[in-house]
């Protein structure tokens, strides 16, 4: 085989490796892209630096809160108020009521989404229960706060924004402390695929 061929092979192998790496690089790239454009109504899962967006004479925006429990999430989860009127450039704190109705300790993660999606880039949150996971003991309840503000750049066609939170049960993804509960918890043994009748009775 001549030198030319070897060089071509080397280049192509690098290209293959490069594209494989690129596929993984798409993940952070996509997230940045989403946050910038508000694609999917995705908003940042961390507090933003919002020092300079407070203004006095903002316009009215109505915010509608929507909650949804993802599959297998038995908690009670509801906004304290369904609908609020706020002004752009003014902070507002809203709360969500959450209660662990089960008899086991569980961990939840709330995922926010904004509609219309082009409002997402203009919604900033100083504080949100979605920034971290929420762990509740059996029967425990809580009022979870979200402190939000719309910057004044919000497109003028948007007078009403829907802010939705979906809570997911992430108990199984969680820490060692939890594993203990998990192990003596009969609902979570590994034989689920086999269905009910295969489970040991209590």
């Amino acid at each position: 085989m001549n030198e030319g061929s070897k060089k071509t092979i080397r280049t192509l192998c690098f290209a293959v490796l490069g594209m494989f790496t690129f596929s993984f690089a798409l993940v952070p790239l996509y997230n940045v892209f989403c946050e910038v454009t508000g694609l999917n109504g995705k908003i940042e899962l961390r507090a933003t630096n919002v020092k300079n967006i407070e203004i006095d004479n903002g316009r009215d925006v109505s915010v509608q809160f929507v909650s949804h429990n993802n599959e297998e999430m038995p908690w009670t989860f509801k906004p304290s108020e369904d609908n609020i009127q706020i002004k752009t450039g003014k902070y507002h704190t809203a709360t969500f009521y959450v209660k662990n109705t089960t008899n086991k300790r569980m961990v939840a993660q709330a995922i926010p989404s904004v509609a219309p999606s082009n409002a997402a880039a203009h919604l900033k949150k100083l504080e949100c229960f979605c920034f971290e996971q929420q762990e509740l003991a059996p029967g425990e309840d809580a009022l979870l706060p979200v402190r939000l503000i719309f910057d004044d750049e919000l497109p003028s066609s948007i007078n009403s924004v829907v802010l939705s939170y979906t809570i997911f049960d992430v108990t199984d993804y969680n820490d060692v402390e939890f594993t203990q509960h998990h192990n003596d918890d009969h609902h979570h043994d590994d034989s689920h695929h086999d269905g009910h009748e295969m489970e040991p009775s209590i």
Partner: peptide, 25 residues
């Protein structure tokens, strides 16, 4: 067995679903 003799677990399955299986809450 659960449907026959285990009322508590029976309720629980319908209320919570079965993780990792098609059974939802």
């Amino acid at each position: 067995d659960i449907v026959l003799n285990d009322k508590a677990r029976n309720i629980e399955i319908l209320m919570e679903g079965v993780q990792g299986a098609a059974m939802q809450s």
